[in-house]
Amino acid sequence: MKEFEFTVKDPVGLHARPAGLLVKEAAKFGSSITVSGNGKSADAKKLIQLMSLGIKQGMTVSCRMEGEDEEAACAAMQEFLEGNL
């Protein structure tokens, strides 16, 4: 299992657009990817769950990858979150 934390810098938070892109990114990997924050957890491959976390600017989220390609998934998710949120 791999895990990292990330603080959201985007002023609108995890809104539809980045959530949609995040789902697409997560779907590239076989590992299960979970995003937790704001007291809830969501499957990163499910858009509605991700959006319903209600993640806003300044909140810290943790991202957990588990599976065969977790190393690659972790690197990709880290890069995605830094670049988009």
């Binding site: 657009r17 499910k46 858009l47 509605i48 769950q49």
Partner: peptide, 16 residues
């Protein structure tokens, strides 16, 4: 255009 892509993804959402 993104909104239509989001709509499409909602229709692909596992929970939905």
């Amino acid at each position: 255009a993104m909104i239509f892509d989001i709509h499409k993804m909602l229709l692909e959402d596992g929970d939905y």
